[in-house]
Amino acid sequence: MTILKLEDIHFAYPGHAPVLDGASLQLEAGQRLSIAGPNGAGKSTLFHIALGLQAPSAGRVTVFGKERRVEVDFHEVRRRIGLVFQDPDDQLFCPTVAEDIAFGPLNLGRSKAEALAIVDKVLTDLSLMHLRDRITHKLSGGEKRLVTLATVLAMEPEALLLDEPTNALDTENETRLLDILLGLPQAILLVSHAPAFREALAPDSLELRNGRLV
């Protein structure tokens, strides 16, 4: 089954040269695909377009076999595809870790008890139980990164989009993150500047060059 299909995507920020100029990609269930490319090549923009946070000026976004055009179409997409942002501080906005992880499930209409059960399960799976009641802005960089992953996994997505997950991680935390990601069943679309990390997690690779994926 094809999870995500982007066809001939064009996008430009107002007053700038186009970032994406006919980019296309396809992500199958269980597939691990990485995207490389220089800074400012539009890798994050591509993710934002896939989840409807930004609208392409031309092109087609097809997710789970349905074409998605307007905001309402993307509600389901965001539930089933999890995006881990580049800067963990953007993603962790609740005061405590438990609340942040429960945020997604609560939005999906789970009860408080169910949400808390999910929190405990996800944290146990990632061996992060000791962080449960910590205050998010007092976490270290590595802890923040792992918690952002937990917040996304709590929504039980079928695919993960990772935007430079190894940013600002030390080797130890990077290894830990890699171990966790390798153990997940989800399809993964990875953007990373670290060739070794790309190689280990997602050997299938595309390169974003001049607004096209090759």
């Binding site: 509600h75 965001r78 995006l83 906005f93 609740c94 609340e99 945020f103 939005n107």
Partner: peptide, 16 residues
């Protein structure tokens, strides 16, 4: 706001 939308934010925060 983008990150919140990705996790299904609909205008209400729930406190635990």
């Amino acid at each position: 706001l983008g990150a919140m939308k990705c996790r299904g934010f609909s205008g209400r925060l729930m406190l635990l």
